[in-house]
Nucleic acid binder design. Structure first.
Length: 583
RNA sequence: CUACCCGUGGCACAGCUGGAUAGCGCGUCAGACUCCGACUCUGAAGGCCGUAGGUUCAAAUCCUAUCGGGUAGGCCA
């Protein structure tokens, strides 16, 4: 399948060499040079000839004129030179026929260039911390990460989605102490992760109180807490394989996971691996030894570090003064394991931009260690989220749990759908798809690097550029097709501007998918969906479809609707949106 | 102090591998449709693209400086 640009570039390359007898400009180069004019009245595609003027030693105006002179082919109804631009007007019927034909022929593969066939990509995303709240701060990594996985799968990659759970560390010592002191098994079984969080918050407060008291008593002595000591001791026992503590730890993890699964299910997310931090504890020493053997490790103030001065970065800490490991150590060990296990062509890490330095550092360390695959590591950062203008803070209670966010969204939608759908089950199903979709669409509308101020009212709005708007449009196409009873057929009828705009928009999809993947940017798809929905709604408004008198025109319009329906479906799924046929 | 990210109409955002009159949504005002689904569509008002220099035939887009906001920076993750 060829996109308009590729097809045009191929024709142009021939044209240029036959007119100027020069092979200076290749088709690939021309694809990059071609652009869409700001106004379609100028043309559907344009080649600015300014950059060619140096190599062809002629003025842009002359070049455009020479190329336009007698340039005829069936693809274009006209090729004209305007102020140094070579403007192409597409032959509408042939073009529409080809585009819609591609959509019908390729079905749910339309838009994919299959550029990832035979390659493997590992995606590390979502990764919540066990026994800590799963809140909207995790929405970015979860939704962007999964969307990137879907996009890569669509392009033919073998994908491994990894939920790198925060399931190890001193917080488990604290949790064990807290549970033994105040915990209630049945309460946790009933209340789930919320109860664990309560225990965790309580012990942290008590430890802080003890420390403050110790300072008040003797300002010169270091801060101290008996509970803190107990927590460290329990974690040590856990590390040493104490059965009782291990059992508790497993239980805490499974209770937390159970809760997260509910949210994942709403979003349609499944992971291929849940290997968390705990899995890598025994894989770190080998990497530390390798660093030491290679002479990369330096002692600094008792800690083991890798000096990164040469690369204008602060040192990367590998071991604490007491010899215990750190975050970068674990990430390096995990990357090595994943390369050995999956042989990835790309490993993508979706985390907050706040961690950019951390990733830059350990990526560099991996390179220094001589691992040839260091350049396959990709950090995909995203901006931070605030709520109503205020920063997220567990302590002050300024958090919105993901499950509460989705519950709220769903119940608001349910109030509206209830009138239309008396069947409670159907009503809830639709409310779920639309409510969750509204939040996801809102989040994925922006450039991922932009900081988001999360305003519930806006996220759940139904007007304008929103999830409900595009899902509604999709449902409308479904309804039209159902009433039509067929998927139509492209006939040789003249197309209006509105119809052509829709066809051009459909034709753009493959480019957008490629761009979204190249930039690791799901919002490219989100905005494309908006364009497509708008183009369809204009078409829908201007043209009678089912009620069209002319049979061959009616069939054509139904086919256009079917193509739109197909692409909307594919595109929505790429950004973790459900596609309800009725709303 | 150093590094990275962001700074586009009242609000929230596209456009940034330089290219033809800077786009979309919300809000405001005025219309159309009320039909294939409660929706949607059309038009108007509103921007010296943070500021100042520079490169170029051409700068919202590249470079430099500067201001404002955010994030990170050795024993947390």
């Amino acid at each position: 399948m060829l996109t308009i640009k590729k097809k045009t570039a191929a024709l142009l390359a021939d044209r240029i060499s036959s007119v100027f007898g020069s092979d200076l400009v290749g088709a690939d180069e021309l694809v990059r040079m071609l652009e869409y004019p700001p106004d379609s009245s100028m043309g559907d595609l344009a080649l600015p000839c300014f950059r060619l003027s140096k190599s062809l030693r002629r003025s842009p105006v002359q070049i455009a004129a020479s190329l336009a002179e007698g340039f005829e082919c069936e693809e274009f109804s006209s090729v004209t030179a305007v102020n140094g631009y070579l403007n192409f007007k597409i032959n509408p019927t042939a073009f529409a026929r080809r585009v819609v034909g591609d959509v019908f022929r390729l079905g749910d593969k339309y838009g994919s260039s299959q550029s990832g066939v035979g390659k493997t990509v590992v995606l590390d995303y979502s990764s919540p911390n066990v026994a800590k709240p799963f809140h909207i701060g995790h929405l970015g990594t979860t939704v962007i990460g999964h969307s990137l996985k879907l996009i890569h799968q669509f392009e033919g990659y073998d994908c491994v989605g990894i939920n790198y759970l925060g399931d190890w560390g001193t917080q488990f010592g604290k949790l064990i102490v807290a549970y033994k002191l105040w915990g209630d098994k049945q309460q946790i079984e009933r209340g789930g992760v919320d109860e664990l969080v309560k225990l965790y918050v309580r012990i942290n407060n008590e430890i802080k109180a003890e420390e403050d008291a110790s300072v008040a008593e003797n300002p010169d002595a270091p801060r101290h807490s008996a509970l803190g000591d107990a927590a460290r001791a329990e974690f040590k026992r856990l590390e040493d394989g104490d059965e009782e503590n291990l059992a508790l730890w497993r239980w805490f993890v499974s209770v937390s996971l159970e809760e997260y699964q509910k949210t994942y299910k709403l979003l349609g997310i499944e992971f291929d691996s849940y290997k968390g931090e705990s899995f890598y504890t025994d894989k770190m020493p080998a990497q530390v030894q390798k660093l030491r053997d290679m002479g990369l490790l330096e002692l600094d103030d008792g800690a083991s570090i890798v000096n990164l001065d040469k690369w204008n970065m602060p040192v990367c800490l590998i071991l604490k003064r007491d010899g215990s490991t750190l975050y970068p150590t674990r990430d390096i060990a995990a990357a090595v394991y994943r390369q050995e296990t999956y042989g990835f062509d790309k490993a993508i890490y979706v985390t907050s931009a706040a961690q950019s330095l951390h990733f830059a550092q350990w990526f560099k360390v991996v390179e220094l260690m001589g691992y040839g695959w260091y350049d396959r590591l990709v950090h995909v950062p995203y901006g931070t989220v605030s709520i109503n203008g205020a920063k997220l803070a567990t302590r002050t209670g300024n958090v919105i749990l993901l499950k509460d966010l989705f519950d709220e969204a769903i119940s608001r939608v349910a109030e509206i759908t209830r009138e239309k759908h008396p069947d409670p089950e159907e009503c809830m199903r639709i409310a779920e798809q639309v409510g969750v979709g509204a939040v996801v669409f809102y989040y994925l509308s922006n450039n991922r690097m932009r900081d988001i101020n999360f305003v519930m009212e806006e996220a759940l709005s139904f007007d304008g550029n929103t999830g409900p708007y595009v899902q509604y449009t999709y449902a409308r196409t479904c309804s039209v097709l159902e009433r039509a009873g067929s998927t139509g057929k492209m006939n040789d009828v003249p197309l209006t501007d509105g119809e052509m705009e829709l066809v051009k928009c459909v034709a753009l999809f493959p480019e957008k998918v490629a761009q979204a993947m190249a930039e690791y940017e799901p919002s490219v798809i989100t905005r494309y969906i908006l364009d497509l929905a708008a183009a369809f709604n204009r078409f829908y408004h201007d043209c009678k479809i089912i009620g069209c008198e002319d049979e061959s025109l009616r069939e054509t319009r139904i086919a256009l609707t079917a193509a739109t329906n197909r692409v909307l479906h594919t595109a929505l799924e790429l950004i973790c949106m459900k596609t309800p046929e009725k709303i």
